[in-house]
Every structure is written in C-alpha cells, then in structure tokens.
Design a binder for these strands. Sequence first.
DNA 1: AGGGGACACTGAACCGGTTCAGGTTTTCCC
DNA 2: GGGAAAACCTGAACCGGTTCAGTGTCCCCT
Lengths: 338, 338
Amino acid sequence: MAKETIAGLAKRLGISKASVSYALNGQPGVSEVTRRRVLDLAEELDWYPSASARALSRSRAGAVGVVLSADPLLIGTEPYSMALLAGIETVLAEGDMALMLRMVGRDPAQERATYERWAGERKVDGVLVFDHLLDDPRPALLDRLGMPFVLHGAPETGVPPAFSGTTTDHAADAATIVEHLHDAGHRRIAHVSGPHRFVHEEERVRGVRERAAAHGMVVVQYEADYALLAGHDAVMTLLRAREEPVTAVVFGNDLMAMGGLLALRGLGVRCPDDVAIVSWDDSLHCRLASPSVTALSRNPGTQGRVAAGLLLALLDTGLVQAESMPHSELVVRSSTAG
Amino acid sequence: MAKETIAGLAKRLGISKASVSYALNGQPGVSEVTRRRVLDLAEELDWYPSASARALSRSRAGAVGVVLSADPLLIGTEPYSMALLAGIETVLAEGDMALMLRMVGRDPAQERATYERWAGERKVDGVLVFDHLLDDPRPALLDRLGMPFVLHGAPETGVPPAFSGTTTDHAADAATIVEHLHDAGHRRIAHVSGPHRFVHEEERVRGVRERAAAHGMVVVQYEADYALLAGHDAVMTLLRAREEPVTAVVFGNDLMAMGGLLALRGLGVRCPDDVAIVSWDDSLHCRLASPSVTALSRNPGTQGRVAAGLLLALLDTGLVQAESMPHSELVVRSSTAG
DNA sequence: AGGGGACACTGAACCGGTTCAGGTTTTCCC
DNA sequence: GGGAAAACCTGAACCGGTTCAGTGTCCCCT
C-alpha cells in the first residue's frame, strides 16, 4: 500500500510519465493498447491520481463552495436549504466535483471573508450563492475576486444576464396563493414575509399586493425574520391590533407558518374556520401540522440541481446564463380547506 | 489582480522563496524584521498561499470528509444530522480545515467507494463516520486505506480503544425514559426502534428491556426504519393487534414519533390520555406537535463539536481516544403529561 | 586572536501530476 | 522505393508551495 505515483506506474510499464498521463485522461497521443495497459494497471493497484497534484498543475481545485449562512437555531430545521444542498450535491458528484461546505451565522462579514479566502487560496473553482439581497454586494465582490458563481434566486434581468443565476417567478407564485385564498372567499389577508432585504421577499410582497389589489382584497404586510417565534408574534400582533381582523395569513416560510399556527391555537382561534393559513414553502412540517398546512411546493431539490448544473456549465464553457425555475405548485391542505 | 506567488513576494522583497515561506508559517529561520515585512506585504496584496500547492508539498489536504447517507426523502427533515454537521463545521473552521460533504442514499457501496476515492486521491485528511453498524465494515476499510477517522457513536469498548470515537451511554438514556414512563404510571409500553443493524439501536433496545424488567413492566419491541410512515404503521399494528394495549410508545426518532402521533389521531386515540408518546430525539417537530412531544435532548451540536475535535486531535497528534458524550436530558412535554 | 555556536538567509530538490516541443516509428500514397 | 504525413512516445519544464543542506555573519567566550 505504498503510495504509488504516476512515475511509479510509468516505470512498471516501461513507458514515460507523459504517456501514462495521456492514457489516464483520455487524451490523444497514446495507442489503444498502451492506454489499456495503463488503465488496467491503475485498476489493479486501486490507484487514483493525487487530487492536490492534479489541482496544482491544472490550476483547478475540483471543488465547488457553498456558504450556508443561517441562524444557528434555524440550522437543520430549514428543510428548504437541505433539500437544495442535496440537489446540488447530486449534480456535482456526477460532474466529479467535490462540495466544500461552510456554515456561518447570519454574518455577511464571515461570508465575505470565506469567499476571499477561497479565491485567494484557489481552494474552490466556483461558488453557489443563495438569497439574493437588495444591493447585494456579493456579485461585485465575486467578480472582483475572479471567482465564478451562480446566484440562486437571481432577479429576472435583461438579456444577456450580467451573471449566471436561477430565477423564480415570484409574482406568479404570489398570484397562485392569492387566487386560492380569493376563491376560498377571503377578502382581508395578511402577508407575513421574510426580511425585505431579500430580493425574493420584495418581489413576493409586490406580487401579493398587486394580485390582491386586482381583486379588491385588503392586504396587511408584516415583515418578519423566518423564525418560529416571529410567525407567532406576527399573528398575535395582527389579530390583536385590528378591529376588523384578517381571515387568512400567508407566511414566508414553513417555520413561521408553524409559529403562526401555535399562536392561533394559543388564542383559541380556530384554523381554518376563523383564520386560514398558507406557507410559502412546503415541508414535512406542513404535512405534519394539525391542521395540515396548505403550502407552495417549490421543489428545492430540482432547484439545487439546476443551479449546480449552471455552475458546472459556467466552469466548463464560461457560458453565463440565467435559467428560470419550473413553476411552483400549491398543495392544498386542511389549513385553507374551510 | 494578477496571481501573486511566493516567488513574486520574494522578488519584491529581494529575499528568497524559502525565507518568505518560513516567515509566513511562523517557522524559525527569519528575523523578526523580515517576518514583519513579509506579513505586511502579504496583507497589503490580499495574498493567500495556494491551497493545492501547499497541499501537495505538505501532503496534507486541509480538508475533512463527511459522507451523509440518508434516504433522499428524509434529507433535510432530519434535524439531528444537520445540527451535528453545524457543530462539526464550527470546530473545523476554527482549525482551518475545510469540510467536504458527500450525500449518498442509503447505499453502503457508494459510501465505500467515496472513502476509497478520497483516500486514493488524498483529497481529505480524515473522515467522520456516523451510525455505527453491527459488524461495521467501515473501520476495517478505513484502516486498510490508511484514512484516519472518528466514529461518532462508537461502542464503549475497552481501554485503549481500537479507534477514535465518541460514545454515548444509551443504557442511561433508556433508563431515563423508562423511569419517566414508570413514574407516570405506565406498565405496558412499546419501543419502536430504528433498524437493529445500528449498534446504538441495539443498545437502546437492551437498555429499555432491562430497565423495564427491573420494574416488572412489559415492553413490546417493534423494529422500524426512522421514516414517518414507519412510525404510523407501528402504532397501527401495535394498537390493533393487542387485546391489552400498551399505554405508552417510545419512538427511536422524532419523525417516527410524529408518524405515531398522526396514527393515534387517525384512530381517535387520545394522547396522552390513552397513549403517551416519547421521542428519542428532540427537535422542532416535537416542540411544534400537538400535543407537544416529550423528547430526549441529545445536543447534536455539542456532539458534532466533540467528534470534530477528536478528529483534529487525531490528525495533529495521532492520538486515538474515545470520548463519552454528556448525558442527555429528557424534556417533558404534553405527550406524557397525563 | 581564534574557535565555536547561534542566527539569518539561500539555492536547489521535492511533492505528483500536466503539457509542450521535439524525436522516432509507422503508415500511406504516388 | 521514397517522401510526407500521421501516430506514438519521451524528456524536460512547469504549477506554487515546503524543506533540507549549506553558506556567510555576527557575537561570545577563553
């Protein structure tokens, strides 16, 4: 089990290092018979080329980085990110790329520092970036660092796009939800969104407002932070403050929906009879809750696969492109069944 | 922004590559004055040493691997693994190690292939292994590959341990749970465990059986697979089959507990009045359920930190050690409040 | 004054691959 | 049969760090 090297293989076969390298990489310059001999020997010895040597000479790390910035408390409870990650990993593995993961709290400085480090050390070939922000500094930073990236959840911009990204039609999603509530007879609804610094939240807010306006519905906007407690507090505030209360609440993610549900329960407000609930993310939480919660299913796994695919394409061919996500589907459950 | 190298720094400063290297790595052989000049210049240029070059010459990848093997459906819903991962990442980041993540389905062959690849390519310096199995082939495999590893959830073996690992006193955990149920007046209980191929499940089964026997309680064992549906089916089977039914069910994880809860609801059996429920893992699911579910809190974050710490120690000093986990705590909630 | 050790520094080898320029051999065609 | 093109192969340079052996200086001590 002594460490074999390409020079070792070459000596055993009585040929040069160069030939071995060509043979292993499917490059022209070796006869078929030599190539077979090399491959067979490598197989027989369970030999793999050293990742770092290869990375050094190819100037390619063979890895893609992901920085997950989430509140420590939410980590693990956010099914969306995990499913996304799983989707990403599937595609990367197929493309022989490793996934380098870094978890930081919601701390932009640390995320930034991680990118700078990765770029400086050439430790990853590209990164996947989540949660596009208003005036997001990250695209400019990554450009400056010369680090290829794909922004998951980029805004739908002009053609050609300034950078690679996946786009989602949040207005359409908003319409789906609002229509559903309108059909169920709701005329006064609340929208408990995530922080408006996220571009997608801003688009959702606008989407909900516009579609509701088209139907003459009243919308109360409430900005929160995705946490369980925030959903809880939102409902407490919304239901206490208004003399004419809303009859439905749309939550920006499943956790807040759960918090809201708990608040309703605490207040003795029946769901869906008195107040209906919709979550903008589907997950096991929504399936398990009582009542089960109507939710927008956004297929995070597929989204991850698409985003990773874009990054690999960008790295291989330098092709910058924006791909739009398949439409989300509303899974209707008990929380709006009234 | 042209790629600087150590040779470039050396030329700018009019000294040799070697001196620059010594200065950067805190090695003796350079004067304080020179060291400062080097560090200042590196700082000024935002320069970092190339990870692959460093990895090649040091024969150290600077990364640790984790293979997450879970059913795709469960991915993201298993808060335990994610919290564990978060804990691991914290420690690795502090030790300047990257985390390389690979997700595979429950497919031992793929996990094995990943380790072989990582070892052959020297892509990671060590791995963290989860879920110790009966006759687990992985320790032997990793030993053969010369890949340092830490087994999270290793059995409590003799001194000195055969390999590094974290150990949990599952018998004590079992005792905590059984005592709680006994105190609440239960005399016939069921234990819906995960697959017995996991060592920790086997130990839990034995622990529950022994402690229950000590109190003259009856235990019905039921082996399941951690999935939501499995918990559901377990309850259906357990409550239908027995003419004298159990009054409490202990579930091996939170998902199955949720499934069981749904089954009770479907059967019109009240919880905790007719049947009490305990989950062996605490998570948001348990907090959110109605009724909220009594659960054993095992601090996955801490466990991850400890395991990662063991691995770093192993890599640094070669020290093989087993560390036992802090005791778990039972969080009593409504599901056993009757 | 001279011997010896500590210290600062350097050139060159090395880690294990990839790749280029050039050298041989084979093949093909007139 | 001879010349050109194609196919195969090789030595050496290179990627960007680390590290060893050795050179030169300076200082201290007897």
